[in-house]
Write a protein that binds this DNA or RNA. Structure first.
Length: 476
RNA sequence: CGGGGCGUAGCGCAGUCCGGUUAGCGCGCCUGCUUCGGGAGCAGGAAGUCGGAGGUUCAAAUCCUCUCGCCCCGACCA
């Protein structure tokens, strides 16, 4: 049925790329590992930005912008940080035709440039907290790239906050993770687990890294957002101190948190089907398309004017588009809007006009119903709501179906490949055991959950006592 | 970095092994007519320095040398 889209069951990876191509979201650029985000893809990013930006502001944050270039010496100031990021940086060595005295790193993340600036802004506890977010592009010279999931240059937001106490920084870190969780579940319609990264998986330079992890349709995990408690690491590296209420000097406490255009990849892989993209209604740049149907030119004029009249009162209540292009036939349009993931399609033709009806079609289920024209808006709004909830529910059921509590190592090794999924296993906390997961099954500890009840058990690798289960999965 | 593949019209490809008229095909595009409730049909038309440089030859998309780039699969990562 769907031309140009490989079936998920045949080749999931190929399917993913086909969906992007057919929905016209993005394409490879002439620069290795970099993509051109096309209008259809960028519109989704704008929806994501709009909602997140609102949520950031509701939690007291403001936007600012720091430079793209970071003097190499700044990046080197925090030891762990440079070790983590130096291998994947792009470095500018020339400017204006001359060799630069000091090379400039194209930011892979902005902690260093920002903390070197915060040093100038902070003297007293009265200057705190600083709650800043920036929308930016960053560059990480990855070995292997995939559209949206991992590109050399990507768009993201990075929050960088400064606090007077450890407790406040911790609260901020957890608050922003909660913002991400809420956004993922309520807008992307993707259920996520929240928790702490292991020592080896945490952000370079952080004390703790918290994350949200989602399951894709191929049962692999995708890290969809991170929030880091940076402790006083960057304050020490950049010598950022403040005087507290008692006149005592201390280093400032820091957090940083981010989500990227990877969320578009998550959205595609979580919901779309063999007919193409499916966008959750709350993030759909175009939630509704109206396809008028006609035969003759006379009929065309009559149907279109009828549709215009009907939809006139919808303006301001819902975003929609009337597809009155004459060069395409209805079947072509149906297919095109499906590939693009528009949640609701409304068909209105001569028969419908005669019966004072309209046909409403839902993208995710294909459900097709006829509705009296004066009720269309109301029903469409209701269907959009239903679809948003249905997508979440379906994703949640999928995750639950492929989540397993496992205690036997052989059992784990067998099932991690087939069917794959999320595995809750006991882990003693030793890095040696963590490494064994990776070597034996190509899976990783995705997180140590916040919400799991304490449960005594034995590490699935070494048998040592364990206090709780952790989430293990193959990941992107 | 290892393994595989590719570069020919806007897109997808054939032609390359075995050199030889005017470099083809599908989709898309333009014009016209017929169509139009699930990817329209017919007719006509436009569109190419065959990734780049050098070489061999009467003759190169095709052979040789060099070179640039991209994609896919693995190890690193949001």
């Amino acid at each position: 049925m769907a031309k140009g889209i490989t079936k998920r069951s045949e080749d999931y990876s190929r399917w993913y790329l086909d969906v992007i191509a057919q929905a016209d979201l993005a394409e490879h650029s002439s620069v290795k590992g970099c993509m051109v985000i096309k209008p259809n893809g960028y519109a989704i990013w704008e929806k994501i930005q709009g909602q997140l930006d609102k949520m950031f502001k509701e939690t007291g944050h403001v936007n600012a912008y720091f430079p793209l270039f970071i003097p190499e010496s700044l990046l080197r100031k925090e030891a762990e940080h440079v070790e983590g990021f130096a291998p994947e940086t792009a470095v500018v060595t020339h400017g204006g035709g001359k060799l630069l005295e000091e090379p400039l790193v194209v930011r892979p993340t902005s902690e260093t440039i920002i903390w070197s600036t915060y040093k100038k802004w902070i003297q007293s506890y009265r200057d705190l907290p600083i709650l800043i977010n920036q929308w930016a592009n960053v560059v990480r010279w990855e070995m292997r790239t995939r559209l949206f999931l991992r590109t050399t240059e990507f768009l993201w937001q990075e929050g960088h906050t400064a606090h007077a106490t450890a407790a406040e920084a911790e609260a901020e870190t957890r608050q922003m993770l909660e913002v991400y969780r809420q956004f993922a579940e309520e807008y992307l319609a993707i259920p996520v687990h929240t928790g702490v990264k292991t020592e080896s998986e945490k952000f370079a330079g952080a004390v703790h890294t918290y994350c949200i992890e989602a399951m894709m349709q191929d049962r692999r995990a995708l890290q969809a957002g991170t929030s880091h408690n940076l402790g006083q690491n960057f304050a020490r590296a950049f010598d950022v101190t403040f005087q507290n209420e008692d006149g005592v000097s201390d280093y400032v406490w820091a957090t940083s948190w981010g989500v990227s255009t990877r969320l578009i990849g998550a959205l595609i892989m979580a919901h779309s089907d063999d007919n193409g993209l499916i966008v959750p209604p709350r993030l759909a740049p175009l939630p509704v398309v109206v396809v008028p149907i006609w035969k003759s030119d006379d009929e065309m004029a009559a149907v279109i004017s009828h549709v215009r009249e009907l939809t006139a009162s919808w303006k301001g209540k819902i975003d929609f588009k009337v597809d009155d292009r004459n060069q395409y036939r209805p079947g072509f349009k149906f297919n095109e809007w499906e590939k693009r993931g528009v949640p609701i399609r409304i068909e209105i033709g001569p028969k419908d006009i005669e019966n004072k009806q309209a046909v409403i079609v839902r993208r995710d289920t294909g459900e097709k119903i006829s509705i009296a024209q004066d009720q269309v808006l109301q029903v469409v709004l209701q269907k959009l709501q239903e679809m948003q909830e249905a997508l979440f529910k379906r994703a949640l059921e999928h995750r639950e179906t492929y989540s397993f509590v496992v205690d036997d190592l052989e059992d784990f090794k067998k099932r991690i490949d087939e069917p794959g999924g999320f595995f809750w296993v006991h882990w003693c906390g030793a890095q040696a055991c963590e490494t064994k997961f990776q070597e034996s099954s190509k899976s990783t500890i995705r997180l140590i959950p916040f919400d799991a009840q304490k449960e005594k058990g034995k590490c699935i690798i070494c048998g040592s006592p364990s206090q709780q289960r952790v989430l293990v999965a193959k990941s992107y």
